[in-house]
Design a binder for these strands. Structure first.
Length: 256
DNA sequence: AAGCTTTGACCTATA
DNA sequence: TTATAGGTCAAAGCT
């Protein structure tokens, strides 16, 4: 079912930040987000030790949870704070919960609500088709697409990172979800941070494709990722070239 | 024609 | 209170 959705995700850009997310979730890198956790000016309920270590768990994780998915719309208890994320309900995220990172669901939920930092996208996609080395920003944006429509609304070079950050907003009318993608000069996504959640279902195929050339599912590519990932098992994977180039390298902010 | 990206400037938060 | 950094907005240009 959601192959499409997921496919979209993966394929969408190849960024597969999500996949990686999930993946790295398993191996969270507290350092990154932990210390670098962006300050959400939104409403950060600090009561929960998010990750107690400052580890941003993968929001996807939750989503992925069958529980959530089952609930579909009621992902999180209203008490905790209505979990506005239901957009993923339609997606099949094979993300697995990291055993070592088992964050408390509640934490996760909270964190999710706030943001999910995806870093360490250490997935090196093999790219048979190199992007010529030049990766326009717009490409990057699309890469980050996880199936949702994102629109870039800004870019900035932050001091914390040597790489520029691109700011994206969900194109859904009522969706306030935002995404920050940090890309290296190579065009590789070094860090992805999600803020807020989607309060709408993920568009199946509607408007996502288009832009870049999304390729049909490329098992080969996917496999590559999965290999590294660890356990992502999706059958979709239209890894586009972008994906390949998405050399997501774990960018650890040592400077922290 | 519509949507998206790009870039600079402005605003807000934090130290 | 001031300075720095981060994040967001808006206008212009491009696909």
């Amino acid at each position: 079912m959601s192959s499409t959705s997921f496919t979209d995700l993966l394929a969408s850009s190849g960024v597969d930040p999500y996949e990686q997310d999930e993946d790295f979730l398993g191996g969270f890198y507290p350092e990154e987000t932990g210390s670098g956790l962006p300050k959400f000016k939104t409403a950060q309920p600090p009561p929960l030790p998010i990750s107690q270590s400052s580890r941003s768990f993968a929001f996807s994780e939750l989503l992925d949870s069958p529980l959530l998915r089952s609930s579909s719309h009621s992902l999180i208890s209203p008490t905790t704070g209505a979990f506005p994320f239901q957009g993923f309900n339609g997606s099949d995220f094979p993300w697995q919960l990291p055993s070592q990172t088992q964050t408390q669901p509640q934490n996760a939920a909270s964190a999710l609500q706030e943001t999910y930092g995806v870093q360490d996208l250490q997935k090196k996609l093999e790219d048979p088709v190199p992007r010529e080395g030049k990766v326009p920003s717009y490409m990057v944006s699309r890469n980050s697409n996880d199936g949702y429509g994102w629109r870039k609304y800004g870019q900035k070079q932050v001091k914390k990172s040597e790489n520029p950050r691109s700011y994206f907003k969900c194109t859904y009318p009522n969706c306030v979800s935002k995404k920050i993608v940090e890309t290296a000069s190579d065009g590789q996504i070094t860090e992805i941070i999600y803020k807020g959640g989607h309060n709408h279902p993920k568009p199946e195929f509607t408007k996502r494709p288009s832009s870049s050339a999304r390729r049909m599912f490329n098992p080969s590519s996917v496999v590559s990722e999965q290999s590294e990932s660890s356990s992502i098992s999706f059958d979709y994977g239209e890894v586009d070239e972008e994906k390949e180039q998405l050399d997501i390298k774990r960018l650890k902010r040592e400077g922290e």
